[in-house]
């Protein structure tokens, strides 16, 4: 059974239709359709192996890097199918940024980490502009005050939470429209997690944010829309408040009450 909800008044930023993903013979995602809006933070929840990360990775075609992965169905970004053969993946990924589970700053300086994206996409014509982009991105990621005096230090020398915020700064430096976050807090301590969640709240509205999380509390705290996945299918999708207080599906209820997962 596939449920999918048209978002009420807003145009969908990302519209997935009947998306199935196969890893070799293994089907990881089964005909999922979902609309992602710009105004919201959308959370994907569900037990391990339910396909939520797989769906997230179809939005910027990171599944392309897995040798035997195959995607069926259609994913549209602003109405344009991103699996069209003439679509440039590099440009797509500049529009759809991604933050990973484990903080993965480049083993370069903090400055270089943020400046790398703008540089390869030619977003700055000179050093002054690049400096401005780096500062703006680090400010938005709430990291500027902590690192402004040591921009030439290695990004890998920061603490885990700082590294993750550096990765967020790196993602927003290329001015994306969508930011995908794949369990961004699972490797962080509670204080760093709180900091990231706060940051997600600040970034909301400016970017369409999709976050995959294992923590239902986190989904409840940061998101306005929640999709629940189970065994490769999307079971339920709706307002976060509805999902957590008044789920329509029995399986959703069982999961959020901790019956399994």
């Amino acid at each position: 059974m596939t449920t999918y909800h048209e978002l009420d008044p807003v145009e969908a930023k990302i519209a997935a239709r009947d998306v199935s993903v196969f890893y070799g013979d293994q089907q990881a995602l089964d005909r999922v359709s979902i609309d992602i809006g710009t105004e919201y933070v959308t959370a994907f929840i569900g037990p391990s192996g339910c396909g939520k990360s797989t769906l997230l990775r179809t939005f910027n075609r990171m599944n392309d890097t897995i040798a035997n992965a195959r995607v069926e169905g259609e994913v549209r970004l602003d109405g344009v199918d991103i699996y069209r053969s003439d679509l440039d993946v590099v440009q797509l990924r500049a529009r759809v940024g991604m933050v990973f589970q484990k903080p993965n700053p480049f083993p370069k300086s903090i400055y270089e980490n943020v400046a790398y994206g703008p540089r390869i996409h030619g977003l700055a014509v000179n050093r002054t502009e690049l400096d401005a982009i780096v500062e703006r991105s680090l400010r938005r990621a709430g990291l500027w005050d902590e690192v402004k005096d040591r921009l030439s230090d290695s990004g890998t020398a920061l603490s885990g939470g700082q590294q993750q915020r550096l990765c967020i700064a790196r993602a927003i430096a290329v001015d994306p429209e969508v930011i995908l976050m794949d369990e961004p807090c699972s490797a962080l301590d509670p204080i760093a997690t709180a900091r990231i969640e706060e940051l997600i709240g600040e970034l909301k509205g400016r970017y369409a944010i999709v976050i995959v999380t294992h923590s239902m509390q986190q989904a409840a705290r940061v998101s306005q829309r929640t999709a629940f996945f189970h065994l490769g299918r999307m079971v339920e999708y709706g307002k976060t408040s509805d999902i957590f207080t008044n789920p329509r599906e029995e399986r959703t209820k069982d999961y959020i009450t901790g019956r399994y997962g």
């Binding site: 990973f100 480049f106 790398y116 790196r170 290329v174």
Partner: peptide, 20 residues
């Protein structure tokens, strides 16, 4: 993860290879 980081920010294959 180093490759993913570069790819996700929109680096091309050759940039991933030579920069990272």
């Amino acid at each position: 993860s180093a490759r993913d980081a570069a790819l996700a920010i929109g680096a091309s294959r050759i940039q991933v290879v030579f920069h990272h």
